[in-house]
């Protein structure tokens, strides 16, 4: 069941739209921030709050890459693999993450610390390659710097 805090946050979000359904993304992101991912039960709670079908909510949830329909680790590392970062060696960055944390793209490290996902251009092309962990963006990343960057995310 939605907690009082969650309910309040959703009530704030729907105020911005003439139709409650407009807040679907806001609702998914808000609840995901608290629960880490969107389970089938969560989907139902959101659908009931927005007064739309579960299928409607899921058609949105499954469309967006920043909505997680499976559990993720305590932190999520997004490796930009678009062209500017590819030219500057994003594949080596990803390889190094795999070596250090034992998680390939789409996987979570065995200790549950880090989920590694590819991401479309992060818009930091002038300091490629770029890496985003949770909400923090790092530029000019080299394989040597990875350990130091990830250190902060326990």
């Amino acid at each position: 069941m939605l907690s009082d805090t969650e309910r309040r946050e959703l009530e704030d979000a729907v105020k911005h739209y003439p139709d409650k359904r407009g807040a679907t993304i806001d609702a998914l992101l808000t609840i995901q921030r608290r629960r880490g991912w969107i389970s089938d039960d969560t989907l139902l709670e959101i659908a009931q709050f927005l007064e739309i079908t579960v299928e409607d909510v899921d058609s949105v949830a499954t469309f967006y890459n920043l909505i997680f329909r499976k559990p993720v680790g305590r932190h999520v590392a997004f490796v930009c693999d678009s062209i500017s970062c590819w030219i500057k060696g994003c594949e080596q960055v990803q390889e190094q993450i795999k070596t250090l944390y034992n998680a390939d793209l789409g996987q979570t490290s065995p200790d549950g610390r880090l989920t590694v996902l590819p991401i479309a251009c992060l818009g930091h092309c002038e300091r490629a390659p770029a890496l985003m962990i949770d909400q923090d963006v790092y530029g000019n990343v080299t394989p040597e710097k990875i350990e130091q960057i990830v250190e902060k995310y326990k």
Partner: peptide
Amino acid sequence: ASAGRYICGEETALINALEGK
């Protein structure tokens, strides 16, 4: 704030996204 996906930059896809579709 959206949740990813390049196609949202296409103006009519963006409108669907804003409507929660």
